[in-house]
Design a protein around this nucleic acid. Structure first.
Lengths: 144, 144
DNA sequence: ATTATATCAGTAATAATTACTATTATTGTT
DNA sequence: AACAATAATAGTAATTATTACTGATATAAT
């Protein structure tokens, strides 16, 4: 693994993302940072955003339309997306207490909720089985 | 508004999506349909998928990686995404009973859940205010 | 200072999606 | 069944988002 080196550009990207709450796309962030670094490259923005996401310093998500957004807040929380203006707002993690909170949005949501989606991420039963098979075949197939 | 006309291609796209459970992307669907319609156009697939989604006959979603998937099931349900093989599985709507089901995935999930996200879609307070202002300004600003 | 290498700017390449256009298919009407 | 109106298509070009590449520059350790 190669050691990380400081760079003013990466620092600026982190700083910029830290001081805004609008969950910008890579391009929106690029346009903003250009006021400070007039000739920063869009590729540099992408590379650092993905690097920071891998390091867990920021999070990246897509809110359904295919575009990817970035967020400095990494602790678990939910998002509210306005279908009218496209704004993405943070919602406190604890707002969902029961299923009915999901269905009607509960009272903590700053607007009208029409629908919601939930995605679970992990490893499916098939992949778990395959992996344990690779690690210790004798358990899965004692004849061997 | 222009009237909808039948087309064998659109029928085939619906049919194909109806008989599979793997939430394909537009391109995956295109490759599959080409066995029946060897010279169907990728643009035709995109156009019809988006049309059907607007009509509410199918649903479209992105599971975080940026790619857009399509689903013939339009009634509310959740998704489980395997980070290992990329499979997208349907989860029954009623599986989430309380917050702890969200956090640890509960027992209804066919695999190991590491994380989850929730997106609420609707209209934010700002847009709601603006809209009501446009419709009846005298209420918002009686002096006028 | 010297050296090694991570990072950069700029550009080219790739992938996903949409737009355009001349042609074909569908539907309602004679 | 032929006709006219137009929705839909195939094929291609254009657009957008993102990644890959390359020679130059910045950073960190010796």
């Amino acid at each position: 693994m190669k050691a990380l080196k400081y760079s003013r550009q990466r620092e600026s990207i982190k700083n910029n993302l830290m001081h805004r709450t609008d969950h910008p796309t890579a391009d929106a962030l690029y346009l903003s940072i250009r006021t400070e670094f007039p000739n920063i490259s869009l590729g540099t923005v992408y590379r650092n955003l993905n690097l920071l996401a891998e390091l867990g310093e920021i999070s990246r998500f897509s809110c359904g339309d295919g575009s990817v957004h970035f967020d400095y807040v990494t602790k678990p929380h939910y998002h509210f997306v306005c279908k009218s203006c496209g704004a993405v707002l943070d919602l406190p993690f604890g707002m969902v207490k029961k299923t009915s909170d999901l269905v009607d949005g509960g009272e903590a949501v700053p607007g009208r909720v029409d629908s919601h989606t939930v995605f679970f991420y992990g490893e499916c039963a098939d992949c778990m089985r395959k992996k344990s098979l690779e690690e210790s075949p004798e358990i899965a197939d004692p004849e061997k």
